Simulated assay, not measured.
Amino acid sequence: MTCATARVRSAALAAGLAGALALTACSGGGSKDAPSSSSPSTAPTSGSGSPAVTGASKQLQGSWITTAGGKVVALVITGKKAGVFATGGTVCSGTAGTEAGMRMIHLTCTDGSKDRATGMVDSVDGKAMKVTWSGKLGQETYTRAEGGKLPSGLPSNPQQ
């Protein structure tokens, strides 16, 4: 990979991450003192008879980054809304929240990909979140992105 190609990819990543971080800045004004809803939900069912998705717990909120297949993937969760942005142009949107006592993510991708259509959050803490996707991806580990900055440890030039 040439330096010019690496710079273009870095610029594309920065633009995508800036958009993802801007999405989180537009979240509804929840109180910092509001309790986290990490306990199982007793949400009513929707008209289809399946459990309704309630808002994602405070732990899930924010911007999360991973790398997969040589691409940087940003997962952004704000309230009940979720989005995935990957270098190369993949954009997915949907919901995140508690469903039947499990923390779930449901996404629809503009390119028709089903790789991240349904994910279950296996674990989450202040720094990392593990999500198991129902598609061929399996489990991915995301790192929290704070303050508009990429987390440390991401490769700056994958060809080195």
Rank of each mutant, 00 (worst) to 15 (best):
K130H: 09
L23F: 15
A14V: 12
C109R: 07
K71P: 00
R116V: 13
G119I: 02
D111C: 06
V91D: 07
S156P: 00
A22W: 15
Q160M: 05
E99T: 03
T24Q: 15
V124T: 13
K81V: 11
M104Q: 08
A96R: 00
G88E: 03
P155Q: 14
I105Q: 05
S57H: 01
T98L: 04
G135Y: 03
R9S: 04
K149A: 14
G49A: 08
S48F: 00
R7E: 06
S123Q: 11
S31Q: 12
A56K: 01
G135H: 02
M120D: 00
R144P: 02
N157Q: 11
S37Y: 02
P51S: 09
S27E: 15
K32L: 15
I105D: 01
P44K: 09
S41P: 00
Q159P: 01
A74H: 09
V8N: 06
P155V: 13
C3G: 03
V91K: 12
A100S: 08
T118R: 08
D111H: 05
S37H: 06
S27N: 13
M129N: 12
G135W: 01
A12P: 00
P51T: 01
I77N: 04
Q160F: 06
K58Q: 08
K58C: 03
T5N: 11
E146T: 15
K149T: 13
Q139R: 12
